[in-house]
Design a protein around this nucleic acid. Structure first.
Lengths: 171, 171
DNA sequence: TCCGCCATGTAAGCGGTTACATGATTGT
DNA sequence: ACAATCATGTAACCGCTTACATGGCGGA
């Protein structure tokens, strides 16, 4: 149930509507916890019913602005520090690697070259974000920077690994 | 629908029963594509209905041995080379990092130290597998080795990142 | 005889994706 | 007047998890 916690986390910063939050998910959270419009609105309704958030304002076009309650903040802290991150990581990319033996070696190398190239592109995109963003002040900036660094190192490692793997498949 | 392809991939090597396959998922595939007993049996039934696999033998205790059909192998190759790996990666670990600002700095450091330690442990486990396994011959060995290397590099990068992150949170 | 393993199957529920559906407001 | 954007909601479907349920076979 981490979508719930993502929403709580975003609402710590400032009250927001479903529509506002949707934009956060399209932006900084897109690479960490993607969520769809449908999902967000449904979850916000449930969270309001559970009194983790409350409607604090109503704007035009039926806009509802939600804010965190004390119970919501407590739930977020509880999740952060006490819930073990136990999500089993699936990787269809690695799964394909496992079975590359069913295609010929040249196709296998081609697949791995593609992975390297994709990793390189993703890395560049993240470098772009690094350069374009102001990392001064604010908790979200501080910790967002850590998350970005994770992405930078991860994409770099992934590229190096794929290049190494291409070399290992010798005829 | 990658569980289907994982099963197809395993059946390339040799025919097997649901029970046999279950053990593969508990072993080498546990870190790549976890699956439960319930899921495996259900999917095998569907795959047999779709004629991607067929029952080739029946053992004691109702054991059914499945083998790949030509259509099954074709489907596996198609998935390997032509289906873009587009699975959005969610990470509740990184999500927590994003919101570490809601707990105090010492707790944040503690969390990151825990991540570093966990990465170190996972790395050691993989080193154990590396040393215990015979990597000679066979496609599964060759490509399994690539997958393992990915795990080794990834866990190492993760540990380094977490240690770096701890240092960055200064009071 | 009895325990452990072999072996399969089903049902309830949840989170996520895709698609459908509606309508108000603002700026040009 | 019209398009773009703001703004919310719902329904069908799918894959995964957890739990329940059943029973045969082999070795100690």
């Amino acid at each position: 149930m981490s979508l719930r916690h993502a929403l709580l986390g975003l609402l710590v910063d400032k009250p927001a509507s479903g529509y506002d939050l949707l934009k956060d998910f399209a932006g900084s959270l897109a690479n960490v916890w993607p969520a769809t419009q449908s999902q967000i609105y449904t979850e916000l309704t449930k969270m309001a019913a559970a009194e983790l958030i409350t409607v604090t304002d109503a704007g035009p076009r039926g806009r509802k602005e939600y804010a965190l309650t004390d119970a919501g903040l407590a739930e977020l802290r509880h999740w952060l520090t006490e819930i073990p991150p136990n999500r089993p990581q699936r990787s269809d990319v690695l799964l394909r690697v496992f079975f590359l033996g069913v295609v010929d070696r040249e196709q296998a190398r081609e697949y791995l070259r593609g992975l390297a190239e994709k990793a390189r592109q993703e890395h560049e995109e993240l470098v772009g974000i690094l350069e374009r963003t102001d990392w001064e002040g604010g908790d979200l900036a501080t910790y967002g920077r850590l998350a970005l660094e994770y992405g930078l190192r991860f994409t770099d490692t992934r590229r190096e690994w794929a290049e190494w793997a291409v070399d290992r498949i010798r005829t």
